[in-house]
Amino acid sequence: MTHAMTQWVLFFIATLVANSAHSQPWQLQHLPWGDPDFQGIWTTATVTTLERPDELSELVLTPEQALAVEQGMEDLQEAIDNIADGDLEAGGDVGGYNSFWMDPGTRALRVRGEPRSSIIVYPQEGEIPYTLKSQLRFYWNAYKMLSRENNPEERPEGERCTVGFGSTGGPPMLPVLYNNNYQFMQSPGHVGILVEMNHNVRNIRLGGEPLPPQIKPWLGDSLGHWDGDTLVVETTQFHPQQFMRLAIKHQLMMATDTRVIERFTRISENEIVYEFTVSDPELYTEDWRGELTLRRSAGPIYEYACHEGNYALPNILDGARQKEQED
């Protein structure tokens, strides 16, 4: 066989192997002890918010609506970076981060390919169904948290670097303005989820008993089990200071006894469908549900160094003392 013929045969064989590999349907891999393999780094970044905007009435977006939502985020990013020429007025608003520091995502949420107007799928209105009493309580607590400047423990947990802003650590695990990555690690009897923002870790025990009621971890007490190839996690006993979860893209209120049931289903090499149900008859008129997609993300996750060089919290308190003297 000539050299040219040998090369042609090898090329033909390589083409057949490659085509065969591409034609094979994706199959979920299992770890040596039998559990489905969810390991890796995933992201929830999306421009879609928890609750549905007033201008959108349906859960499923048309292609044109999805493009408009995505364009809206792009326009906002440009506006943030459009700083006026000249010096800023003394004592005025100096603004916040420019878009270099933000990673909110660029696309509307898609679940199994379907573009969504909100993470909430039920109730149909796409809003958290607070009771009237709990809604008034929410506004009062939000006002107190954002207006009191006498004690660091009165400020939001994100400012204090105990947990991430809003409900990024969860559950439910919701996207925020940046650092929306999660690393899944598994061992027999456990699933660990490293939350990028403030490097909290959810330790999900597969089976077993709940923690004693007086123990209330920051991210709650999570017990899991496998329903076929779906990871089901039930969480309650949240830390009382996780009561108000405030972020730009979502604001919600949850109590220590609120119950969250999550379902993680890996549907492809690069996607996990994440479903959750939140229950608390003291806060909500009915259970509410949401859906997200965790997408494969390039790693690694670097340390979220919240405290190092972060002068925001002492400056908030110092500024309040200065204002008190001036008044």
Rank of each mutant, 00 (worst) to 15 (best):
Q39I: 00
Q183L: 07
S117P: 01
G158K: 02
Y122L: 13
T258H: 05
E157H: 07
F238V: 05
E324F: 11
E308K: 08
A90D: 13
K249Q: 11
E51Q: 15
Y274T: 04
H22I: 10
R107N: 11
Q77C: 04
H239P: 02
L294T: 10
L10H: 00
W26M: 08
L211W: 06
F264K: 01
M102F: 12
H225Y: 13
L56T: 01
S23C: 11
L206H: 06
Q237R: 12
F264G: 00
I267L: 11
Q77F: 15
A66M: 01
R266K: 15
L67Q: 12
G192S: 11
F165H: 08
T256M: 14
D327E: 15
Y97M: 10
A66F: 05
T277F: 01
R295E: 12
A4T: 15
N200Q: 08
S187V: 04
H239V: 03
R137C: 02
T43Q: 08
E271R: 09
I267W: 05
N98C: 01
T230H: 02
Q29L: 12
E149H: 11
E291Q: 14
V163K: 06
P152A: 02
P212F: 06
I248T: 15
G319C: 13
T265H: 12
I128R: 11
T106F: 12
V163E: 00
C306S: 01
E286S: 13
K249R: 14
R52P: 09
A18G: 00
P171E: 04
R202K: 09
G158L: 02
C306Q: 04
